[in-house]
Design a protein around this nucleic acid. Sequence first.
DNA 1: CTGGAGTACGCCTTCAACAG
DNA 2: CTGTTGAAGGCGTACTCCAG
Length: 325
Amino acid sequence: MYASTGATLPTGPGWTFEPKYDGIRVIAVATAGEARLFTRNGNDKSRQFPEIAAALRALAARAGRSLVLDGEVVALDAGEPARFQALQSRMHVEDPRAVALHATQAPSALVAFDLLLDGDEPLIARPWRERRTRLERVLGRRGRGGKGGRLRLGHTEADGAALLARARDAGWEGILAKRTDATYAPGVRTRHWLKLKVEQRQEFVVGGYTEPRESRKHLGALLLGYYDRDGRFVYAGHTGGGFTHAGLADMARRLRPLARATSPFTEAIKTNAPAHWVRPEVVVEVKFSEWTADGRLRQPIFVGVRDDKPARDVRREPVARSGAA
DNA sequence: CTGGAGTACGCCTTCAACAG
DNA sequence: CTGTTGAAGGCGTACTCCAG
């Protein structure tokens, strides 16, 4: 079951709110003898996260029945759910010795937020609040806290505004709003679950663009930068999202007269398609989810051209972040 | 050491199908 | 006729693997 994107925080009774955990969404199928973690594409990730699989087997053994949970595999940092990048190094690792090393050095946990099957009893036709009660009963106190635990109970609360405020402070990607009376519709994107994103946006200067790859016209992606304190032009990533056909044509018209032979960026950059350089004069507004550890934009989307700001004044803006998501 | 291919996540736009 | 929805296509970052 997938969430639709919501524009505003829903109000009134009948909604519950959860943090948007930043990891890999999985359906966990657990029996006493075997546990599997399936991604959205149906790939089995249980070999990549053996510590979670073991905890699931133990849970099913203790419960004396098989269980199917919906949740998110997250990296842990000091016992708390951390950022997505910490997981990426593990996503494709298959060698058993490498997996074992990761499991101790970069431990992960499953944050469970739904229970779909409890023994022989399917719960997907039951309302969320009932499934939640059953989930809490199954996970017990171990799920609620416990920094060492590999299975966590996802947080949920009734005050959406408060949770959204926390999300902003802590630099989370966003929160989810769920109807407490909604049944679980497998594989379906529904308005009963809404994703409310905490988006960041700021201006960047276009330092070049890449050639279009497939059937796209005019340009592929904008190469974005900003000026640091020493006046150096720093690369921030590239974005090809957010353009309409007309927007691409307009951007190409703006950039063509600014062509130059060499890169304006201080660092050498790698692109998926051949790059064209321009004098860094066009200022664009870009929304994005977060800065990566390497100083790149994650999920950057072009919003529009800013004619009102001199390119020289474009800096990297500080982000409020008081903890990990 | 480097570059390209392949895979994972997810976003946005477009377009066709469908329901009211 | 209009609005919604889902799939496809085109982007991103980050990682591994492999060839040279």
